[in-house]
């Protein structure tokens, strides 16, 4: 962890008509770290990711990626710079086999430049590179999972496929919107090492999560949001012991469980 900020979010505000979904949210993400973002339903986490990645225009504020202003740039340009995201509601190409899903990101200018996740600047055959990426993130090639139709894959694989789409671009940072949710305990257990491996690979991760226990295991720092505002930021322990956070999550069993566990 070098401590230099790769992503700086400054006073980002987003209003949908009268509803203020984000109110002057600021934070920084350092290169190589895993930053968690938690908050009750509707607190604006997805909206924050959408604003940073250019999927929706923010009302005001600024986003810097590696020092360059990317506020309200087109989504594909931001992705092309290496800032990628997954979708909370998964968006695979259902009519294609899993490996063909990766042919599309591998067709992008960035993938051609970088050669994909493990590529050294030159992109090989797209089908092969796609299958290699899938195998590396847990699609067992021996049991032909990469060749299965996306529509027939269970949630666990679809979440990985979301990550794979980002990895095909050889990203510098991935904003993950709830990659753990909808997964069984054992699926999460196998997902956590994958996340750690991505970090060891030098990929910075921002993880929006409701599964606090698993998140606290991997996150270096956690930001808490509530009603579109940043409530606090700190290490997992600081967040777990904070009275403010308990209040925001009042009644949520998940947090009570985590708090007692802590």
């Amino acid at each position: 962890m070098s401590g230099t900020p790769i992503l700086q979010v400054k006073e980002v505000t987003k209003a949908f008509g009268g509803i203020v979904a984000l109110n002057r949210v600021s934070f920084e993400v350092n290169e190589g770290e895993i930053m968690g973002i938690i908050g009750p339903n509707g607190s604006g986490k997805t909206t924050l990711i959408n604003c940073i990645t250019g999927f929706i225009k923010m009302s005001s504020g600024k986003v810097l990626f590696k020092g360059r202003d990317i506020s309200n740039k087109p989504a594909h340009k931001i992705a092309d710079m290496g800032l990628t995201r997954t979708f909370q509601i998964m968006r695979p190409y259902y009519s294609l086999p899993a490996y063909k899903n990766l042919v599309i990101p591998l067709f992008s200018p960035r993938a051609r430049r970088t050669g994909g996740w493990r590529g050294g600047g030159k992109l090989g055959d797209r089908d092969t590179v796609g299958i290699d990426i899938l195998e590396e993130i847990g699609f067992e090639r021996d049991s032909f999972v990469p060749y299965k139709m996306a529509s027939s894959l269970p949630t666990g694989y679809l979440k990985r496929l979301e990550l794979a789409r980002c990895l095909a671009l050889k990203p510098e940072i991935i904003l993950c919107d709830e990659v753990f949710s909808g997964l069984s305990m054992s699926e999460i257990a196998s997902m956590v090492p994958l996340i750690e491996r991505l970090q060891m690979d030098g990929i910075t991760l921002v993880m929006v999560e409701h599964r606090l226990r698993e998140l606290f295991r991997v996150a270096n720092r956690v930001m808490v949001m509530n009603f579109g505002e940043k409530l606090m930021e700190g290490t997992a322990e600081e967040v777990m012991t904070s009275e403010k956070v308990k209040e925001a999550y009042f009644g949520s069993e998940e947090v009570e469980e985590v708090m007692t566990y802590a």
Binding site: F55, H76, A79, F87, P92, I104, P109
Partner: peptide, 24 residues
């Protein structure tokens, strides 16, 4: 071809195509 695949992806799922760094 792969280009044809991308076009079909634009039809099916344009947000994912944008997230892949391609201008729809």
């Amino acid at each position: 071809t792969d280009l044809g695949l991308v076009l079909r992806a634009v039809k099916d799922n344009d947000q994912a195509v944008r997230a892949s760094g391609m201008s729809i």
